[in-house]
Design a protein around this nucleic acid. Structure first.
Lengths: 212, 212
DNA sequence: CAATGTGAATATATTCACAGCG
DNA sequence: CGCTGTGAATATATTCACATTG
């Protein structure tokens, strides 16, 4: 099975399958069919089967998919059977909420270092993680083998912080700043931008009241 | 120009254009061409022109687009020339960071009420907004004409909170909980899910080290 | 003559529909 | 039988390429 050709939209959906399968597992289900799995994440059954077919043959005709088996396979394919280490840059309100967010650890991610340029914050400890000065970024990324940089700084600083993380060697960036940053081809970028989400939502909210 | 047929992907991109145009305006640019605008948000020039062509004819051949004019038109189309009121449910770490996040207000959104089920939090004031008990949700949404509900509660409570917001009359939900909630057709849902973003990122991070 | 606006061409994505297997 | 796995059909999205126009 040639994974390198699987398209991006499919890969983006895989974590949703993993999450749904984990739920099913917790609920004690042994098998699941594409209809049920699809309903959990609001994806058509044919789409579920097609997505999975790009990765292998995981099901049994007439029965469905083994919940624990399919979950493990998808987790392995996504690399979620390892632990990934990340650092956080920007320990303001948002950054503190990110450190304290309980969802990353079960998801497979550990934030092992935090950096901020504010001397008031440096030296403090947030959620058990010491806040280091920006000057220690490069050394720490290398020493702790950090592969992911999480960026929670103001828009104006985001690009330079991202450049710095990339230079230090991270392979992925999770960017919370409201900018469209540039990264080299080899670096994977994900943006978290609730304002953009809301600003497209309003278009549809208007429909209800827009004079046609 | 029939806006009701414009596809979702196009609408999702419009706020990015608005943001880029606002930057250009701040920088003093009067006109912009599709190449420059596209470069700012990493979209191909032909895509920029095609997207805009679904909404009208905003440019001048040989010149480009008037920055202030195009920005205003897009803002109007998205409904960003009005102010939208939202309420927040769940005033934990994440909720507090959301209230304090300075990006919503310039984006066109005001959080005018906050709710939590924790009696310790109720009555306190976070970022100038009093935290109310859940029992006041329905009445406040109606009285303050709140159209958007922002959900920052644990996964286990998300669906019931969302049901409650929908029943109270909100038309849009911005969901930060790691679940795929069900909402009626008429309600617009946007999910903010950084863990899913990271979990698809790892697939690509693995590529560098995956034995082919 | 430089850049838009847009049909036509291409590429991606989703859905259908059914053969084939457990 | 009931479901998967999958080609074929359809629907969406992007890109090309150029006629058009200020």
């Amino acid at each position: 099975m040639d994974l390198s050709q699987v398209s991006d939209v499919v890969i983006l959906r895989l974590p949703m399958y993993v999450r749904a399968l984990s739920q099913l597992l917790d609920a004690g289900s042994e098998v699941v069919d594409s209809k049920t799995l699809g309903r959990l994440i609001r994806i058509a059954p044919a789409q579920v089967r097609k997505d999975l077919s790009y990765l292998g043959k995981f099901g049994k005709q007439g029965q469905g998919y083994s919940v624990p088996y399919l979950r493990d396979e998808l987790r392995r394919i996504l690399g979620l059977d390892r632990r990934w280490t990340a650092c956080l840059v920007g320990v303001g309100n948002l950054g503190q909420a990110i450190i304290d967010y309980p969802g990353f650890v079960p998801g497979g991610f550990s934030i092992v270092a935090a950096f901020d340029s504010d001397p008031e914050l440096v030296g403090k400890s947030i959620g058990g993680i010491p806040v280091r000065p920006m000057s220690e970024l490069d050394g720490t990324v290398e020493a702790s083998e950090i592969t992911i940089g999480i960026v929670a700084v103001p828009a104006s600083q985001a690009q330079s912080v991202i450049d710095r993380l990339v230079d230090a060697g991270v392979q992925g960036i999770l960017n919370y700043a409201p900018v469209a940053p540039h990264v080299p081809e080899r670096v994977i970028l994900r943006n978290i931008d609730p304002v953009l989400s809301l600003q497209s939502m309003t278009y549809y909210l208007l429909q209800g009241s827009r004079p046609d």
